[in-house]
Simulated assay, not measured.
Amino acid sequence: MASSNDLKNGMVLKIEGQLWAVIEFQHVKPGKGPAFVRTKLRSVISGKVVDKTFNAGAKIETANVDRRDMQYLYNDGSGYVFMDASDFDQLSVPAEVVGDVANFLLENQNATVALHEGSALYVELPPSVVLEITYTEPGLQGDRSTGGSKPATLETGYQIQVPLFIENNTRVKVDTRTGDYLGRVND
């Protein structure tokens, strides 16, 4: 148990049987009336964001979430298998938990897996990853000045929008949160 005065960003709370991560919080002391804490919480399971207010000093149940750096090994058909680099234990994470992260996940890539009571809650990648374009239509001469975009397929099979000058086998940086093209990578 913790007090509402102990809240920090990233802390995971257990409210009404569900896990919620604190995105932001603000202690408010109005001129009239008692102090309170205004928070923005994100559901760990669904990703839904809600605003919640707690009285100052109110007791809140915290959840023990273990965040481990793991290496993605392979997809076995029923889930994604990750290996803990410290003790080489393997963990199969269901596809529903991995979610959209799978669009940017390559074998032997490092990721952070959050565990609560032995079960995986979510998988996090760095804010951006470098992937190779496996297929895109060629850009036409003269199209380059328009600033338009075209679809391109990444090596993971996911499709993003890229500028017209990008060609096949080009390595690009992609934002893992939005799926946006961030730029070319020159090796």
Score class of each variant (00 low, 15 high):
P30Y: 00
P126D: 09
Q141C: 05
A2I: 15
L106A: 12
G31P: 06
N169Y: 09
V174P: 05
K8W: 06
L106P: 03
G157R: 01
I23G: 09
Q161N: 12
P163H: 11
A114E: 13
Q141K: 04
K29I: 11
S128D: 04
A114P: 04
D51R: 13
L154C: 00
L115G: 02
L115I: 08
K32N: 06
M70W: 02
N186P: 01
G99M: 01
E24F: 02
G10N: 12
P138S: 07
V172Y: 02
V44E: 13
K48G: 12
A21L: 13
V49K: 05
M70K: 09
V113D: 06
V101R: 08
R144F: 08
S149Y: 10
W20A: 11
Q71H: 05
V174T: 00
V129Y: 01
G157L: 10
K48W: 08
V97P: 00
A114I: 02
K32M: 06
V65A: 14
L41N: 07
A85Q: 14
T112C: 06
K52W: 04
V37G: 07
A21M: 13
V44Y: 10
S128H: 03
E61M: 15
D6C: 06
T136L: 08
N64P: 05
A152W: 02
F36G: 10
A85M: 15
A2R: 12
L106N: 08
R67C: 14
R171K: 14
V37R: 10
A114T: 04
V81Q: 14
V37L: 04
Y122W: 09
V162T: 02
L105D: 02
E167H: 09
D100L: 07
G147M: 03
I133Q: 01
Y72M: 06
A102H: 02
N75V: 03
R177S: 11
T62K: 05
V162K: 01
R171W: 05
P126Y: 00
L115P: 02
G118C: 04
L140R: 00
A95W: 00
V162L: 00
V44A: 13
P138A: 09
Q109T: 03
L182A: 07
L41K: 13
Y122V: 07
Q26W: 08
Q26V: 06
S46C: 03
L164C: 04
N55Y: 01
N186C: 00
N103M: 08
M70A: 08
V130F: 07
D66N: 15
E124Y: 00
P127I: 01
T176N: 07
L115M: 12
E24P: 01
V172T: 00
R144A: 09
D87R: 14
L91Q: 09
K32A: 06
R67A: 15
D175A: 09
V81L: 14
N108M: 06
L164T: 08
Y80I: 00
